[in-house]
């Protein structure tokens, strides 16, 4: 009998309150992307421009924390549709740079950004209903949904991302040793 054709794993990625640095770092796995593509296919991702996560997605990789209501919506959508969810990078794991605003009242920040800072004469705080509302504080992903694996770093190196993905594909518990594990 012929061996069954191995189904490729569907991988979705997105950046929430992030800078796409982790996605850039993901591309740093360079030619190993070809090896990876023998095992996976990209679903919703900035790399494919697919807008919705497939309901039977295998792995979701999320960069960035939660700074507005839309971020929370996308995260819940990923959680609902992905078997495994991976938080990638400092912002997804502890809020990162956007969370530096957490000790300031949101109203004071909006005032300063749109109204009182120099050069913005009489600026108005945007209130178009299409704009997602900012959260009072920026939160890391694991405070809202269950996250299965974490890849720390700002950004994690291509090698760290490769290590975690290949560990997962091989059915091993992902582990980053010294040199690959870093928070900065």
């Amino acid at each position: 009998m012929n061996a069954p054709v191995k189904k490729k794993l569907k991988v979705a990625t997105t950046s929430l309150a992030g800078c796409f640095g982790c996605h850039m770092s993901f591309l740093d796995i360079d030619e190993r992307l070809f090896t990876l593509l023998e095992h996976i296919e990209f679903d919703r991702s900035p790399l494919t421009d697919i807008k919705e996560v497939h309901p039977e997605c295998d792995i979701g990789i999320i960069e960035g924390g939660l700074c507005n209501a839309e971020n929370v919506h996308v995260l819940r959508d990923f959680r609902k549709n992905c078997k495994i969810l991976i938080a990638i990078g400092a912002c997804a794991i502890n809020g990162g740079l956007p969370a530096q605003r957490n000790h300031l009242p949101l109203s004071a920040i909006l005032e300063e950004v749109y109204h009182t800072s120099p050069g913005l004469s009489n600026g108005l705080i945007p209130n178009d209903p299409e704009l997602p509302l900012p959260l009072n504080q920026v939160h890391p992903l694991h405070e809202v949904v269950k996250i299965d694996y974490f890849i720390p770093g700002c950004p994690p190196s291509g090698d760290a991302i490769w290590k975690v993905l290949t560990d997962l594909l091989a059915g091993r518990e992902p582990e980053l040793g010294h040199g690959l594990m870093h928070y900065d």
Binding site: A87, A99, L176
Partner: peptide
Amino acid sequence: GMMSPHYDHFFP
């Protein structure tokens, strides 16, 4: 081998 902070942040 701390891969995540696990707990909710206080953001003091």
